[in-house]
């Protein structure tokens, strides 16, 4: 590339980074400002002193420990349930032939296409008649399995050579043991991919808890953060941004540790 072109390319790259990274920088910067520093125009880029107190204020403005624990329980609970239901189902779809298999798999594929935004109303009515409204179960059970996970893992299981399973059968291994000792270890990369996808999705989820909870007993972190807006005296942006940092930081840490797997996980959902 000629030098001028290279320079222009660099400028453009920098511009793209600014567009996507600047909002985050702005978020961090705001979260460490005093209220006064947020209310100036033109905006002040950096805080004079770092006001860590904002984080404590955000945390203490509601039962955030409860929210945080609820979020952890819900995201991890969903993950455990999903592994427990997705692995056997994917294995059966990949490895066994049985009457009505295609019908059941079609049901799975149809479910893959049904978003929460379509069915929240009737599910809400069901949960309320089962007494599960405003409980953590109501946040976990509807996602106790994942059509996407079944689809993804089925592909992986299908790629295991038939001979490996036959060898294990000759070695007197039970079907359960073949799944546990041979298939699941071989599918580990896919399980990690799917696990990251599921955890991030449900950690971030705002819609479902918004609709299914009514008290702080079962609210999750995103909901608690969103409620910060409604504190009396109006929104003070430094506290709001500090609150959001609490929500974003765990995800960003995971992203830095496992960037490649996460990108794989999310791009997979697109290229299925």
């Amino acid at each position: 590339m000629p030098k001028v072109q290279k320079f222009l390319n660099g400028i453009c790259l920098a511009f793209v980074v600014v567009i996507f990274a600047l909002p985050f920088v702005w978020m961090i910067s705001t979260s460490l400002k005093t209220l006064g520093e947020t209310l100036v125009f033109p905006p002040q880029w950096l805080p004079e002193n770092l006001v860590w107190q904002n984080f404590l204020d955000a945390w203490n403005s509601g039962p955030f420990l409860k929210y945080f624990l609820n979020s952890v329980i819900v995201a991890v609970g969903i993950l455990i349930f999903q592994f427990a239901t997705v692995i056997p189902a994917a294995y059966a779809f990949a490895r066994y032939n049985f009457p009505l298999k295609n019908f059941f798999f079609a049901i799975t594929m149809v479910t893959l296409m049904i978003p929460a935004q379509l069915i929240f109303l009737p599910v809400f009515l069901n949960l309320s008649s089962w007494g599960l409204l405003d409980t953590l179960w109501g946040l976990i059970l509807p996602f106790a399995t994942s059509a996407f996970g079944i689809f993804l893992l089925r592909q992986t299981f299908k790629q295991v050579p038939e001979e490996v399973i036959e060898a294990a059968r000759l070695d007197n291994a039970s079907e359960w043991k073949i799944m546990r000792r041979i298939m699941v270890p071989m599918a580990k990369p896919t399980l990690v991919t799917f696990g990251l996808f599921s955890f991030i999705t449900h950690w971030n989820d705002y819609f479902w808890p918004l609709v299914m909870t009514t008290t702080d007993q079962s609210r999750t972190l995103p909901l608690g953060i969103a409620q910060l807006r409604q504190v009396e005296g109006g929104a003070s942006w430094n506290i709001l941004m500090a609150g959001n940092m609490i929500l974003v930081i765990p995800i960003l840490i995971i992203f830095f540790i496992a960037q490649r797997q996460i990108i794989r996980a999310f791009v997979y959902t697109g290229v299925k």
């Binding site: 050579p161 001979e163 490996v164 036959e166 060898a167 294990a168 059968r169 000759l170 070695d171 007197n172 291994a173 000792r181 041979i182 270890p185 071989m186 580990k188």
Partner: peptide, 21 residues
């Protein structure tokens, strides 16, 4: 009789070793 009970051992063309063990 299921394969495991036939008292047969087999060496496969692609060896079919358990890759994670």
């Amino acid at each position: 009789l299921v394969p495991g009970k036939r008292d047969i051992s087999m060496v496969f063309q692609n060896y079919a070793l358990y890759p994670t063990m």
